[in-house]
Amino acid sequence: MSGIGTGYDLSATTYSPDGKVFQTDYAQKAVDNSSTALGIKCKDGIVLAVEKLVVSKLLVERSSRRIHNVDRHAGICVAGLLPDGRMVVNRAAEEASNYKSFYGEPIPGRVLCERLASYMHLFNLYWSMRPYGTAGLLATYDEDGPALYLVEPSGVAHKYHGTAVGKARQAVKNELEKMKLGQLTCREAVVEAAKILHKVHEEDGKPFEIEMSWICDDSGRVHQRVPAEVLAEAEAAAKAAMEESDMED
């Protein structure tokens, strides 16, 4: 049922007659309209990737990041409203550093995810605030190995083998489901992620750049941006694959 015009959809503290909190759904819309981001869990780590539209040629290349370091062993890729995303990243960094100073060891991914989810959930509880218009793909590598989580505006969080958010999430998920995620290495996943993002971008043809990070054995289990040359290689492979498939058509 649509909530538009009923008056039940104006506050995060209002239920509609059939039990929905529309403001939370609307915040999710902001994420759904955003540029596409994806995360892949590989056998040796996690790869995060996001497309960014280049709205002006005056912009400095690779500025306004969507992937951030949270701690050495954790990183977040934010979809949706970038300013909201940064606040979530700030909170994650605080949680990580508080945990470290209290327990003397890095925050486990599971705990970080839980705390972020609680934090985002808080903004669904008061009329005086709005839910965050952002979702975070969280990549961590701790004692239990690599893990990928998705934290949504509602405060819901799940652990994934692979997932996507943003405009083309469905198309990306279809691609991910075809892949054998458990057998992939991060190096291979970087290429796959580039291919997927180029493919879902085929139709609109707008200029975009890809931001990618990984946390794996290659990166010393430290979350970092995928090295420029590795990313360039992956993008070249993606473009080559696109042309190949064009020839077949």
């Binding site: 538009i4 506050s11 529309f22």
Partner: peptide, 17 residues
């Protein structure tokens, strides 16, 4: 519309008027 008078209200399209 009724979604544009408050900064804490999301519009159904996920915008903040």
């Amino acid at each position: 519309n009724q979604y544009d008078t408050d900064v804490t209200t999301w519009s159904p399209q996920g915008r903040l008027f």
